[in-house]
Design a protein around this nucleic acid. Structure first.
Lengths: 198, 198
DNA sequence: GGGAAAGCGGAGCGGCGCTCCGTTCGGATG
DNA sequence: CATCCGAACGGAGCGCCGCTCCGCTTTCCC
């Protein structure tokens, strides 16, 4: 989906300079607006903050999800790459899983409204969901599989369901002081742990 | 909020007959539309399905949440009343808690988009959240307290947080076949159970 | 320098929530 | 039954938003 990388000697015509500049301006503006007004801020606001027209924003990012993905791509990549590393560093697969989930939760909770957007069924957000899934589900599967193999987690636990559930729990985690998703996720992790013996 | 009951001999002027009829038509229409188009269907659609103007719908139900509350009031009441009954019927407080949560989940999942609406921060839905809380949180506190007293649940579990978390887990539970909130909630319940001994 | 193609921008359309006010109608009164 | 008045009605209208479309500008290759 919408790759941004370009190899130096591609025969394909390189993107024009102004287009590249505008794309960057849009990414910066969107990042600012997402913080101040959430990920479903009016498109017009982002466009005007970037000093471009609405046509431009839609040309670079056909759906809102494309823009959100582009803005958070770095963080998602970091999170995905942290998975295998934690598996190697930590004492046990379960400890690695727990810490990785912590990173995932930080990502969702820190970004105003990201968790909400991830689950809203509203049209264009579908591909946002898909991107997170494509990138992070394999990592979750790896970590969870290792923890199951080590006998630390009850077999039969569905990675997709777990990830989605954790994402759901993060909704509203940055607004209500009485609600801390991390505590519940810790409880959920207790729930998937295998009983000590048999 | 917005009581509908009226005592027979109230000195206050009784509501006009057509007003009462329209209110009922609106409730019926809203119930139908909520099923087919979700709880955030266009107001115009509900109004026209009921055969009334938009002014009428706003007069009877000033915010969308008021309408949603009115439509689901019966089910919420039933759920609330089931709490103490289950506590008396079931073998243990924890079993009662589990079954009651099952009822709560059914309520959220069966009604298309109710769970989503409950957590959307969008303006008028705040009072929907408040209503559910007012009515159901005390019940949850009672059940949870009993389970803690019986030594079945770890002390320190926050009723509000648990309820909200369960509500969050229900989001999307009626659309994605790979995601069944009930399984995760079962795991969460395992997580709050007290360790067998100390 | 010149011209084609890539890129730009914003007017405009349709859909929505919500308000406001001229019109209608129910029902108490004599 | 005729009268009246305030409760209730309804929908035109406003502002906001997402998204498209097309005439204009800029870039860049020769």
């Amino acid at each position: 989906m919408a790759g941004v990388e370009q190899s130096p000697q591609t025969p394909a015509r390189a993107k024009r300079a102004d287009a590249r500049r505008n794309q960057q301006k849009l990414l910066d503006a969107a990042a600012e607006v997402f913080v101040s007004s959430g990920v479903d801020a009016p498109i017009r606001e982002i466009a005007s903050r970037a000093g471009v027209g609405m046509g431009t924003i839609y040309r670079h990012f056909p759906t809102r999800a494309d823009l959100v993905i582009a803005v958070f791509r770095h963080q998602v990549e970091e999170c995905a790459e942290a998975g295998p590393r934690l598996l190697a560093e930590e004492d046990s697969p379960f400890a690695a899983l727990r810490r990785w989930i912590g990173l995932f939760v930080d990502l969702l909770v820190t970004k105003h409204g990201l968790a909400e957007a991830l689950h809203s069924e509203a049209e264009g957000f579908a591909s946002l969901h898909a991107y997170f899934l494509d990138r992070l589900l394999p990592v979750a599967e790896q970590l969870l599989g290792a923890a199951v193999d080590a006998g630390e987690v009850r077999p039969g636990t569905q990675p997709y369901e777990l990830m989605r559930g954790i994402g759901n729990l993060c909704v509203g985690g940055d607004t209500d002081p009485r609600y801390d998703p991390r505590r519940l996720i810790e409880l959920l992790l207790r729930g998937i742990q295998a009983p000590p013996a048999a």
